[in-house]
Design a protein around this nucleic acid. Structure first.
Length: 593
RNA sequence: GUCCCGUUCGUCUAGGGGUUAGGACUUAAGAUUUUCAUUCUUACAACGGGGGUUCGAUUCCCCCACGGGAUGCCA
């Protein structure tokens, strides 16, 4: 990796999202893989914003992408936010370029100008469908029937343009040609060109479509490796054809199409009794919300249906299939259900499966809807990223927990999976707990302080806080759980575990605690070993079962029945506080039983 | 519908013509522990189905089933 400077500098990858909304974790993973690959080969990693659709532009989306990547802890070497040799990196700022190249293609006979209105195209397709064509499209078989520069006389075309008539540029896809291309993760893929329609290259607003902009920019920016989602696989042959038409085939980038990230398996839902019950009620009302026309009466029917279908995974799978015997309202519900339960991970899956899809919290600028992100939920970026990296890639050994450097070292596109992966929150949480336990003192303080304040406690010293961390880090998955589970480390307990109280808080225990206070008071030096010794000597001398005293002691000091070692806690909070708490408990709590 | 891609424990996956099919998460049991965790040990659990090719197939080929994607003047 350290040698071959020439090879190293020649790699260029890119991440090219469109700012149509918050970046979902699939996008982050694509960005990550582009980064890992680029970094591994010492190359350039470009962030290019594909904002060629004016209608779908969402303010803030671009910042969201950059913030997300920053939070995850990796970076681009070129891009909208940092500049670079190929600036600008926003496609809306490069539009003359695309028009120029589209023109070049038209002149060379690889593309043509078309004047058809959407309605006319629609009519053509409808007509073909009616006469039995399975896949009606604007292509070699139909382009001669339409209004374009292939069918119109040149003067006519000229006149129309002069008159200001709207037009687009379409790519002239060759007829019936096998297009074969190599994909780094899927090997050879073969598609016949008749499957591809004459894609629009330049829209009537003068802006390019993805297909044109992407090919032109990857060429201009000297991109060597295009790493993108599987949804692009079917249009890759088109892109190849375009590189060919431009005469750029020699320098065409290599392609790597990544598998999708899927929703969790719905049969898991069926097997979980609690979740199942929830879903039987929730799904019909969610459907009702989306389809108010179904009518209130639907809710019950929907629940009935689910109850039958969700008996077990097999009935579930069968029951969700299309069935001609279904009543119309159930048929609609079913197809809606399929969309909700299967397929790519989507925004709805936070609600449905408890799986957030955004790295950061996103507030929809139009609706005000808040979609909570991994960061705000308390996930550590390194845990999130490590888990995400493994959803579609694996180094091929048993390595799972990896630092960024290890991921870079081990990464290869050949090891990227072909098949999609389902998101598993349990495993992410395991990673999270692991990384939390290995956090540095500085990070701990940085993360814990706001949580302590948010819980309404006074902020203790850093030293004390690190003591808290030491006692609690093995017991939590999120930092916010610390003030929640160990409130007694920040103030004397207000509430006491009733169950525990009824089991062991009696006259006998109270007397023992009074004895213990006496012994503790005499003890000058206050270390864990010493006070444990006092405790043990006492119970041995009085032949008491250890739990008989330990439980009431813990209860008096913490109010709880579980937690770190009680002597550790006593030392942390100090001698005075320990004694105060025992005394106060003895005053406040009446003996039970 | 048509085209493209995929299919190993419940989940994420390793492997690859002859393996006791390996690891991780989850679940369960045990050890440690004053409790709760952590940690450690153990257990449960998989090659979608059918045909080939082969002495032998989970691995290669074909078909089917299932899952996914694409089929826009969206990306």
């Amino acid at each position: 990796m350290q040698n071959t400077t020439f090879q190293m500098s020649s790699i260029v990858t890119r991440y090219a999202p469109s700012p149509t909304g918050p970046q979902h974790i699939g996008g982050i993973r694509t960005a990550l893989y582009s980064y890992l690959f680029g970094k591994k080969h010492g190359g350039e990693i470009i962030l290019r914003i594909e904002d060629t659709d004016q209608n779908r532009y969402v303010p803030g989306a671009e910042e969201f992408i950059i913030n997300s990547v920053n939070w995850c802890g990796f970076a681009f070497t070129q891009g909208v936010h940092v500049g670079g040799a190929h600036a600008p990196y926003r496609q809306s700022e490069r539009s003359e370029l695309y028009a120029k190249y589209a023109d070049q293609l038209v002149k060379a006979g690889h593309a043509y100008i078309a004047f058809d209105t959407p309605a006319e195209i629609e009519a053509m397709k409808a007509h073909l469908s009616a006469t039995g064509t399975v896949m009606p499209q604007y292509d070699a078989s139909t382009r001669h029937l339409m209004k374009n520069s292939l069918t119109l006389a040149p003067e006519e075309v000229e006149a129309k343009i002069k008159a200001g008539e709207a037009y687009i540029v379409r790519f002239k896809v060759p007829e019936n040609e096998d297009v074969k291309f190599y994909d780094l993760v899927r090997d050879w893929v073969n598609i016949n060109s008749s499957q591809i329609d004459d894609k629009v290259l330049l829209k009537s607003d003068g802006l390019p479509t993805y297909h044109l902009a992407n090919v032109v920019d990857d060429h201009e920016m000297q991109v060597t490796h295009v790493i993108r989602g599987e949804e692009w696989l079917p249009s890759a042959p088109l892109h190849l054809l375009m590189y060919r038409a431009f005469g750029w085939e020699d320098t065409m980038p290599a392609f790597a199409h990544l598998p999708l990230i899927l929703k969790p398996d719905p049969s898991v839902l069926v097997q979980n009794k609690v979740r199942k019950k929830e879903m039987i009620v929730k799904l019909p009302s969610m459907y009702l919300e989306a389809h108010p026309e179904a009518g209130e009466a639907f809710q019950q029917k929907g629940e009935q249906f689910l109850q039958q279908v969700m008996r077990d995974p097999v009935t579930f799978q069968k029951g969700l299939k299309e069935d001609e015997k279904d009543k119309p309202e159930i048929a609609d519900f079913k197809s809606w259900l399929r969309d909700q339960l299967y397929g790519k991970l989507s925004k709805r899956d936070k609600e449905l499966h408890g799986i957030p899809v955004f790295p950061l919290t996103w507030t929809d600028p139009e609706t005000g809807d808040v979609n909570v992100g991994y960061r705000e939920l308390g996930y550590l970026p390194e845990a999130f990223l490590n888990y995400l990296a493994l959803l579609g890639w694996n180094p091929g050994n048993d390595l799972e927990l990896m630092t960024m450097d290890e991921m870079i070292e081990n990464f290869s596109l050949e090891k990227v999976h072909k098949s999609p992966a389902k998101f598993d929150l349990d495993k992410l949480n395991h990673f999270q707990a692991h990384y939390l336990r290995n956090l540095s003192a500085d990070r701990w303080l940085e993360l814990l302080k706001p949580e302590v304040k948010a819980a309404g406690f006074d902020l203790p010293s850093d030293e004390y806080l690190l003591g808290v961390v030491d006692k609690m880090k093995e017991r939590v998955t999120f930092v916010s759980e610390i003030p929640e589970k160990a409130d007694y480390l920040f103030q004397a307990p207000h509430d006491f575990d009733q169950n525990m109280l009824s089991k062991g808080w009696n006259e006998e225990a109270m007397q023992m605690l009074r004895d213990l206070i006496g012994l503790y008071e005499k003890q000058e030096s206050w270390t864990e070993m010493e006070i444990e010794e006092i405790f043990k000597t006492y119970i041995e001398e009085n032949e008491i079962g250890i739990g008989k005293l330990m439980t009431p002691l813990r209860l008096a000091i913490t109010g709880k029945s579980f937690g770190p070692g009680i002597f550790e806690i006593s030392v942390l909070i100090g001698k005075n506080e320990t004694l105060d708490r025992i005394k106060s408990a003895l005053e406040r709590l009446q003996p039970v039983g």
